[in-house]
């Protein structure tokens, strides 16, 4: 294993993050504040609690997931797409490193960034509401798994994308709707039975449900199923990335 190469990629990627630290930090804080003002205070004050949880607190796991998923995809996809776009990918391809080392470097950096943002949002949430996290270790584990799986997905999107438009296409047209319809701001038990069934085909439901379970000890779907779903999703992403590097699809002529 070329650990120095992994460290080089990770450090190089993180330095980009630190160059724009203010933006990286302020943007999620601001959007979280807006969500709390709009959903938590303006709308939430007119709503009853959901499954016994105050609505303001109920939306916290969904809000964190929303940002973590989109940030993981955006950081990882940009991380690998940018070298392709400016041509510096030649260095990666000509270096004595394996696909696994490249993935660990880029995905590790993307994970770190989105984990940081997730924790910033959680910290901001404490400013607005009283939160009692029932299973903090499980919460961190779920957060890490989500950062990992969506960073892997982002990495695939970054390799697939042939333009900046394509880079934003999947997150905008697929991921954001899935996250919004995956129970970020509501419990799927609030939906009519037919839509409850349809929603179960949305993989994001399992992630948000599992994450919410770590906060409140209750979930839309069983925690075991949530874990299985996120594990399966991670495995699929890893297999796709392994295939990409084996065949050189979109990166090696």
């Amino acid at each position: 294993m070329n650990y120095r190469a992994i460290k080089a990629i990770y450090t190089f990627e993180m330095s980009r993050f630190f160059r724009t630290l203010l933006q990286s930090f302020l943007s999620p804080v601001l959007s979280t504040c807006l969500y709390f003002v709009v959903f938590g205070t303006a709308i939430g004050s007119r709503m009853e609690s959901v499954d016994g949880v105050d609505y303001g607190a109920f939306i916290v796991p969904g809000l964190i997931m929303l940002s973590v998923m989109t940030q993981s995809i955006s950081n990882a996809s940009f991380g690998i797409y940018f070298p392709k776009f400016i041509g510096t990918v030649y260095e990666l391809l000509s270096a004595p490193i394996s696909f696994l080392e490249i993935v660990i470097g880029y995905v590790g950096a993307a994970m770190t960034k989105s984990l940081f943002i997730g924790l910033v949002i959680l910290g901001t949430a404490f400013l607005f509401i009283d939160l009692d996290i029932q299973y903090p270790i499980a919460m961190i584990l779920f957060l890490l798994l989500t950062c990992l799986s969506f960073s892997l997905l982002g990495f695939i999107i970054g390799i697939w994308a042939g333009s900046f438009e394509q880079l934003n296409l999947v997150p905008m047209l697929v991921v954001t709707p899935l996250v919004f319809l995956g129970g970020s701001f509501y419990s799927i038990s609030m939906l009519p039975p037919i839509w409850q069934t349809v929603t179960l085909f949305n993989p994001v439901v399992y992630l948000i449900s599992g994450f919410r379970w770590a906060f409140f000890g209750q979930a839309d779907v069983a925690i075991g199923i949530s874990l299985w779903a996120i594990g399966f999703f991670t495995l699929v992403c890893l297999v796709v990335i392994w295939w990409i590097f084996k065949t050189g699809w979109r990166i090696r002529t």
């Binding site: 120095r4 190469a5 080089a8 990629i9 450090t11 190089f12 260095e91 990666l92 270096a95 490193i97």
Partner: peptide
């Protein structure tokens, strides 16, 4: 530094 690191050099 990045280039050196990629090639596994200390």
């Amino acid at each position: 530094r990045f280039s050196r690191g990629l090639f596994g050099k200390p």
